[in-house]
Structures are given as C-alpha cells and as structure tokens.
Amino acid sequence: MPFYECNENQFVENVRRLIESRQSFAVNRRISIYDDYKYGLAIIPDQEFEKYAMVCDRKGYKHTVYAKVPFVDDFHGRFYSEGETLHSGSTLNFPRISLPYYKVEYSFNLWGSTYSHTFDGLFEPNIVIEKKDLSARMRKTIQARKSNMLVHVLKLDPPDDKMLALNLPNQVIIFDVKKMTRVFD
C-alpha cells in the first residue's frame, strides 16, 4: 500500500482537488505530545534561540549552550546553576534540556494509498522572575541562604490549538485518532 508524504502546500492542495472532484473522504488527525530530546538548545535556529537568551547563551548554531543565570525549568521541575552546560556542542543528539513539542499528523486514504503531512509544533518559552521554594541542594549551588527566593523561571507553554490545525474548510470531516497503523501488503 503506497504511503505518500506531502508538505503543507501539497497536502492542502490535494484536499482542495478532492473537494472539487466531489470525492468522499475523511481526514485523520493525530496530535501527540513528545518530550524525547529531539530538540535541544544548540540545534534550534538563532531566531528561536533568542527567545531563551535571558537564561542561556551560545556562540552560534550547534555550539555548546551554557546557563547564563541560575534558573528553574518549570516544565521538567529541574534547576540549573550559572555556567552549567545545557546542550554540549560535542553531543548534539543528547541535549540536557529537552524542548517539548506536539507532533501533528494529517492523512487521508484514497484508492488504497495514504497521503500524509506531518509537522512538529514547538512549545513556546516564557521566561519570568518568580519567588520559588528552592531545595537545599539547589540553594547550595547558588550559595543562597533563604529557601524562598526570586529566581528566573523557564516556562514552556503549548502552542494554541488553532496553530496545530491546518486551515481546512468546515465541510472536510476530520477524525481525531490515537494511533495510525500502516499496513503493508
């Protein structure tokens, strides 16, 4: 059974052609959250890295990323002290901070073939300064006495639902599914 991968432009145009030819079809959509270390701070483009610049620094793309200030990664509940390596340039496949994302898969079947479009929607960083209760270990690394102190907090917010959706007209039936299994004849 052939499986065709399309980019956004191709997938939407294929759907449009199907609508215009009055074919009956349904689009399947699978949205799943991943936090599997696929994306790290050293391998994101400069424009995306700038969003994290308040808490970390790097010389350039694929260079080692260091913590600029002590901060709490609120999403994973971890604390990083100043100067700590967050993603080493020599181990790009193994970042220490994983950037979570939604994997979005759209597909439809036609005449025994599957046409799909897949993309990842990255979580959006939101860095704030908040009062946090730090553990004794955390306080030791930054030589702080108070347990409750102001610290940089990296929050990672999921993208808006509408940003994970393709712009398809309402007459297109979209089925949300949990799992897609490809059957090979």
Binding site: E8, Y39, F119, D120, G121, P159, D160, K162, M163
Partner: peptide, 18 residues
C-alpha cells in the same frame, strides 16, 4: 494576527502566523 508558533517540518524550522 491571531497567534504565532514555531513549527518544524521537512527538517526545517518555520515561523507560522495565523
């Protein structure tokens, strides 16, 4: 503008604006 997001497809990073 409704919202913006960073997406990745075909191994490329995209700035998506709705």
């Amino acid at each position: 503008v409704y919202s913006t997001a960073t997406t990745v497809s075909d191994g490329r990073f995209w700035n998506k604006m709705l």
